[in-house]
Amino acid sequence: MDSDLNDMSRDELLAELVKLRNAVRAHRDSSGHDLCWHHPALWNLLPEQSSIQPVVPDWPVFLRGCLKYRQSLDEQLPDAPRFNKEFSGRDGA
């Protein structure tokens, strides 16, 4: 699956590494409502394309998962700053 790496020069490999690190940093630095979104831009950095569609839970199951995720943030990051800005849409989050 990663055989394309075998044909890359050292400079090409370094450029690929920097690109991937920057993508991981952007994902890591997501905050606020952006934590709730999937990140296809990150997945699109892979050389192979996938037609796999995410399986989306029904609303009650999905919302229970959101609550568990938010509770896990309280447990793992109890001192993280908080805010109460309402979500206003994907581009205005």
Rank of each mutant, 00 (worst) to 15 (best):
residue 28 R to K: 00
residue 28 R to H: 00
residue 29 D to I: 00
residue 29 D to Q: 01
residue 29 D to L: 00
residue 30 S to E: 03
residue 30 S to C: 03
residue 31 S to L: 01
residue 31 S to A: 04
residue 31 S to D: 10
residue 31 S to Y: 01
residue 32 G to H: 06
residue 32 G to N: 02
residue 32 G to Q: 04
residue 32 G to L: 00
residue 32 G to A: 01
residue 33 H to C: 03
residue 34 D to Y: 03
residue 34 D to F: 01
residue 35 L to E: 02
residue 35 L to N: 02
residue 36 C to Q: 10
residue 37 W to S: 11
residue 38 H to C: 12
residue 38 H to M: 03
residue 39 H to Y: 08
residue 39 H to K: 14
residue 40 P to S: 11
residue 40 P to H: 15
residue 40 P to D: 07
residue 40 P to A: 08
residue 41 A to C: 08
residue 41 A to M: 10
residue 41 A to F: 11
residue 41 A to G: 05
residue 42 L to P: 03
residue 42 L to Y: 10
residue 43 W to A: 13
residue 43 W to F: 08
residue 43 W to S: 14
residue 44 N to P: 04
residue 44 N to C: 12
residue 45 L to F: 06
residue 46 L to H: 14
residue 46 L to T: 04
residue 46 L to P: 07
residue 47 P to L: 13
residue 47 P to V: 07
residue 47 P to R: 12
residue 49 Q to M: 07
residue 49 Q to Y: 05
residue 49 Q to D: 12
residue 50 S to T: 03
residue 50 S to I: 01
residue 51 S to M: 07
residue 51 S to F: 06
residue 51 S to G: 15
residue 52 I to L: 10
residue 52 I to T: 09
residue 53 Q to H: 07
residue 53 Q to W: 04
residue 53 Q to F: 06
residue 53 Q to I: 09
residue 53 Q to D: 11
residue 55 V to I: 08
residue 56 V to K: 13
residue 56 V to R: 14
residue 56 V to A: 13
residue 57 P to S: 09
residue 57 P to Q: 09
residue 58 D to N: 13
residue 58 D to V: 10
residue 59 W to F: 15
residue 60 P to A: 11
residue 60 P to K: 11
residue 61 V to K: 14
residue 62 F to Y: 15
residue 62 F to H: 11
residue 63 L to K: 15
residue 63 L to A: 13
residue 63 L to W: 15
residue 63 L to C: 08
residue 63 L to F: 14
residue 64 R to A: 15
residue 64 R to L: 09
residue 64 R to E: 12
residue 65 G to M: 13
residue 65 G to K: 09
residue 66 C to E: 07
residue 66 C to W: 13
residue 66 C to L: 08
residue 66 C to K: 15
residue 67 L to D: 13
residue 68 K to W: 04
residue 68 K to L: 04
residue 68 K to P: 03
residue 69 Y to E: 01
residue 69 Y to T: 10
residue 70 R to M: 05
residue 70 R to S: 12
residue 70 R to G: 11
residue 70 R to E: 10
residue 70 R to Q: 06
residue 71 Q to L: 09
residue 71 Q to S: 08
residue 72 S to I: 00
residue 72 S to F: 00
residue 72 S to C: 02
residue 73 L to M: 08
residue 73 L to Y: 04
residue 73 L to P: 03
residue 73 L to S: 01
residue 74 D to L: 10
residue 74 D to W: 03
residue 74 D to R: 08
residue 74 D to N: 09
residue 75 E to V: 06
residue 75 E to W: 04
residue 75 E to I: 02
residue 76 Q to T: 06
residue 76 Q to H: 05
residue 76 Q to V: 00
residue 76 Q to R: 14
residue 77 L to D: 00
residue 77 L to F: 03
residue 77 L to P: 00
residue 77 L to M: 06
residue 78 P to V: 01
residue 78 P to N: 06
residue 78 P to D: 01
residue 78 P to S: 06
residue 79 D to V: 03
residue 80 A to I: 05
residue 81 P to G: 09
residue 81 P to R: 05
residue 82 R to E: 10
residue 82 R to H: 10
residue 82 R to M: 09
residue 82 R to T: 10
residue 82 R to I: 02
residue 83 F to T: 13
residue 83 F to Q: 05
residue 83 F to I: 07
residue 83 F to N: 09
residue 85 K to G: 02
residue 85 K to N: 06
residue 86 E to W: 06
residue 86 E to P: 05
residue 86 E to Y: 08
residue 86 E to M: 07
residue 87 F to K: 13
residue 87 F to H: 11
residue 88 S to F: 12
residue 88 S to C: 14
residue 89 G to N: 02
residue 89 G to E: 01
residue 89 G to P: 07
residue 90 R to T: 06
